[in-house]
């Protein structure tokens, strides 16, 4: 999956709860382990908790530079983007931008020109098990909505279909089929399928296996 991303900046977008943060954290870990210098940005302006900031310690240990909003995981609702974010456009790191769901993409539009100057891959993360994008018509609308909101072009679709801890190989494979159909429909190429390591028996090629990075409460 990493080898197909040609630009230095990789933006992850999608519908709420499609698993962008999980993909972003695992992508950062994989890139760091492959010897790349990596930076990850918690660019989420819509979600109060369960975010990239939860994985800061583990990522920092792997040498990943984490840009986290000052008030993430505090008791206030101040969805600010830290000034340090601008360093993404002048660094030589592999930069992963974890964007908030749906309307969260509006925050990208402020930096649209900078992204275009530097070049970017924008990945739409798809989860067929999410009710508002489960049907192809709704998913296609969501892809176009995020492009319209951000003013940026989506370069790839990633199938991250999962049901949390109840995910089976069938869940993932049906998601891949739906994602391939969506790819055809919206004219955006399919990049890969991502799945939790615990899911056994997936028969598709090129699956990117991930740890579950979601913070556990119990």
């Amino acid at each position: 999956m990493l080898d197909k991303i040609k630009n230095r900046i990789c933006v992850l977008c999608g519908h709420y709860g499609s698993g962008k943060t999980n993909v972003a954290v695992n992508l950062a870990k994989a890139a760091a382990r492959a010897g790349k210098r990596v930076c990850i940005v918690d660019f989420d302006v819509v979600n109060p908790y369960f975010r990239t900031a939860d994985n800061r310690a583990e990522l920092t240990e792997l040498g990943v530079r984490c840009i986290i909003p000052q008030y993430a995981n505090t008791n206030v609702d101040i969805p600010s983007i830290p000034a340090e974010f601008q360093s993404v456009f002048i660094s030589d790191e592999f930069c992963i931008i974890d964007v908030g769901g749906d309307d969260g993409a509006i925050a990208l539009s402020a930096y649209k020109e900078r992204f275009e100057e530097c070049g970017y891959d924008m990945v739409y993360v798809y989860n067929k098990s999410r009710p508002l994008i489960s049907e192809e018509d709704d998913a296609a609308e969501s892809v176009r909505y995020i492009e319209a909101t951000s003013g940026m072009r989506i370069s790839w679709l990633v199938n991250n279909t999962n049901l949390g801890e109840e995910t089976t190989a069938r869940t993932v494979e049906e998601g891949e089929d739906a994602c391939l159909a969506l790819s055809e429909r919206v004219g955006v190429p399919f990049l890969a399928t991502t799945a939790f390591k615990e899911v056994k028996g997936i028969t598709r090629e090129g699956v990117f296996y991930m740890d579950n990075a979601t913070k556990r409460l119990f």
Partner: peptide, 9 residues
Amino acid sequence: MAEKMLMKG
């Protein structure tokens, strides 16, 4: 929505 869905509370 006969099958299970992954949803926020």
